[in-house]
Every structure is written in structure tokens, then in C-alpha cells.
Design a protein around this nucleic acid. Structure first.
Lengths: 210, 210
DNA sequence: CGCTTGCGGAGCGATACGCTCCGGTCGTAA
DNA sequence: TTACGACCGGAGCGTATCGCTCCGCAAGCG
């Protein structure tokens, strides 16, 4: 059926559009803007997802698998440093789903996927530590927070909201430079990091059921 | 007059509360939440400022002077590196006003203040470059974008929104570590930064009159 | 004790939202 | 070619929330 294929295309477009719009406008964004960005009607969105929250839930479910995959891609690279950089730069590019925290409820399946993702990522960190390419006082949580911090670019978001497509390339280039600077700070250095090592629940508490 | 003193206290409380709330909720925040955070009524807010936009305008005006002052404080430090770090860490702590971009109109006086601020900051960068403590391919715009990127902490914002004050200290500590990592990336290194050097209008175009 | 000054917040009109529902479109099969 | 039904887009409804106005009240002053 050709209609089926179109429905699947619409679904993928919806998910992609939702990620983009959420990255720019946050979770407060309207379903109308998501549908418009995907090039479909509001009706089609609600035929596939029972509510705005259901769409967000599905987004997070998919992202959990994606993060695991990115970490495993990093592990597939034989160079520990390049593998880590691959994880960071890829995660930054796909954009954060942090604004959705508190709007989705974690199922048992999702927590399981989450621990799988964490395991793969920590293996990536461990390997970099052992190879001596990552400064020893940097923990996995430090890197996760750094990625999250870099995932949201106020400049690019502003340009997209204003429709200034002419400067988008320059902004993305500038963003890549900022990421490169931050990543360079992960190499072994002389100045120790301040404070105590952060705990993982700093990162996970946000997704617990509200 | 005792009433005058109270009004001034209220005004300062309003400005501070507005910065805090904007940093957490963005420019979409309601005047009610600003007034509540300041511990004053909505009426008092509107007696001082004719509209929400007028309050934001005043916020940006004050911030322009503040940024100049921070840069000059950095220049007052005889150590070029410490001076630069002072600018970055202080700017990050006071929080970004980027969400207000597009809501305020730049007066001639404000553009003048803006160039003064830029001048002081670029002097700070120049000095660090000449002293060899800042990698040469890092420009002033790179640092400004880095500061903006670090000014918004999704983790801290989430904890404040959820009222999880118990984890705020740990989150702030983690945030300081992330900033330290990024700042470490500014030291002279081996890997060159990607792409071309960004231009200053990337940063300034956001504040032009809409 | 009356007057002035500044206060807090209830409530109004307007806006923007999530979601429903229906008329129209197009692929499919006889 | 035509009748059918699956699927589409989006107008519009009820509701929540917003910026802002306005007024009753408390506190200092002569």
C-alpha cells in the first residue's frame, strides 16, 4: 500500500521535526509547530500519537537506543581518543532531549536501556583513561554534563527562530570551534579540577517518574 | 523617607529576581513569577516599569555596564591568564541575558556601551595572546560564545524548577568542573581549531533592532 | 486624625495552547 | 470510469495562562 509508506515517512518526519523544534524552543513548543516543521497536518500527528506527551515519550525511547549505538560506534574505533571524540561530537550534533525531563515516565524497559547506554559509555571513558589520553580527574558524569552543556547553542537557536538562514553556516562553524575548545580541555593537563567528583544520580534523577 | 528606601530595595530585588528567573525559564517567563521571586506584588513591578519589555530593557542596560566592569577587573589582574579566567568564571556565574535578544531595542547609548565593553574584553584577549597563555587560534568571539554556552546549565535549571534544593550544591560543583574543563581547552595546544575564525557580527546581530 | 504615598493581588480581556472532528483527496479494485 | 474507503490537512472548541489595570488597604507624616 502506498498509503502505508506515506504514513511511515510522515512518522519519521514527525520524530525528526520534534527533535529539531524541541532543541530550539524547548518542551514548551506547540504541537502545531512540530507538525508544521514536519510538513504534515496536526490531524496526522494525533492519528499516530495519542497526545503530545506520548510523542515525547516515543522520542526518548528512540534516543536511548541511539545513545547506546553512538557509544558502541565509539568503542568500534580502535583509537580510544577518537572514539571518545566521536561520541561527544555526534551527541552534540543530534541535540539534547533534556527539556523533556519531567514530561516522560520511565518504564522498566527504558531504565534497562538506560543502563545499557551508561555501560557502553563508561567503557568508552575507561578505555580512554587507561590509554592515558583523558585526564584522570575527569569522570564519566563530567563528560555527560559537558556534552549536555554543548548540545544547546543559543546562537544557532536564535538564528533559526529569526529565519536568518544566511548566518547559519557561520554559526555552526563557530559552534564546532567551541566544541573543539572544550574537548581539548579533556586532554591530560596540569591544573586539577575543582571540587569533588560528581555522582551519576545528578544526571539520572531528572528522568525519574514525577 | 523610609518609603523611598523600600522602593529602592524593591527595585533591586526585582532586577535580581528577573535575572534569576530569566536564566531558568527564559524570556517567556511571566511577570508574576518575577514579582513573586522578588517578594513584591505585581503592582509594584508595574509602578516602576511601564511594561515587561521595559524591565527587560533596563536589565540589558545594566548588564552592558557590568560586562565592561568585569573585563576591566580582569585587566586589573597583573596575570593575563588569571584575568581572563576571572572574566569567564564571573560572566558564567552571573548568567546570560541571551534569551532577551529580540525583545529589547538598542539605543545609541547602548551600542556605545557595547563597544566599550567589547574593547575592554578584546584587550583582555590580546594581552593573553601576547603572553602566550591563550592558544593563538582562539579569537575573542570564540571565547564569548564559549562563555554564553557555559552560562546556561540545564541541570541547575531543572533542579531549581523542581525545587530540589538538596542537590543544588552538588550540581553547582559539577558545573564548576565543566567550566574548568572548557577553560583548560583554551591553553595553547597541539590540535588546531576547525573552520575559519568567526566574525563579531555573529554575536552582535542578535541585539539589533527587530 | 485626615492625608498622602506606596503596597499587594483579584480580575479583565486577549492570546495561545492541546486536541477533536470533519470535509476533501487520492490510491485501489471492479 | 467509477465507487469506495483510508488517510490527509486544518478550522475551531474549550481551557489555561498571560500582560496589565485598578482598587482597597497599611504605614508614615504633620
Amino acid at each position: 500500500m502506498a498509503r502505508r509508506a506515506e504514513a511511515e515517512r510522515n512518522d519519521r518526519a514527525l520524530l525528526e521535526a520534534a527533535r529539531e523544534v524541541i532543541a530550539v524552543d524547548g518542551a514548551h513548543t506547540s504541537v502545531a509547530s512540530i507538525a508544521a516543521r514536519a510538513g504534515v497536518g496536526i490531524g496526522s500527528l494525533y492519528r499516530r500519537y495519542s497526545s503530545k506527551t506520548a510523542l515525547f515519550q516515543h522520542l526518548v525511547e528512540l534516543a536511548l537506543d541511539e545513545w547506546t549505538e553512538i557509544a558502541e560506534q565509539g568503542l568500534a574505533d580502535e583509537d580510544p581518543w577518537n572514539g571518545l571524540v566521536h561520541y561527544i561530537s555526534t551527541s552534540v550534533r543530534t541535540g539534547s532531549l533534556a527539556p523533556l525531563a519531567g514530561m516522560v515516565t520511565f518504564t522498566d524497559e527504558m531504565t534497562e536501556k538506560n543502563t545499557r547506554s551508561d555501560k557502553a559509555f563508561e567503557a568508552l571513558i575507561d578505555r580512554a583513561h587507561r590509554a592515558g589520553v583523558l585526564r584522570r580527574d575527569v569522570t564519566a558524569v563530567d563528560v555527560l554534563l559537558l556534552v549536555e552543556q554543548l548540545s544547546k547553542s543559543p546562537l544557532i537557536e536564535h538564528l533559526q527562530q529569526q529565519g536568518r538562514a544566511d548566518m547559519l553556516d557561520a554559526a555552526r562553524n563557530a559552534q564546532r570551534r567551541v566544541v573543539a575548545i572544550a574537548v581539548a580541555g579533556l586532554r591530560p593537563g596540569d591544573q586539577p579540577l575543582p571540587g569533588e567528583e560528581p555522582t551519576m544520580d545528578l544526571f539520572t534523577q531528572r528522568w525519574s517518574t514525577s
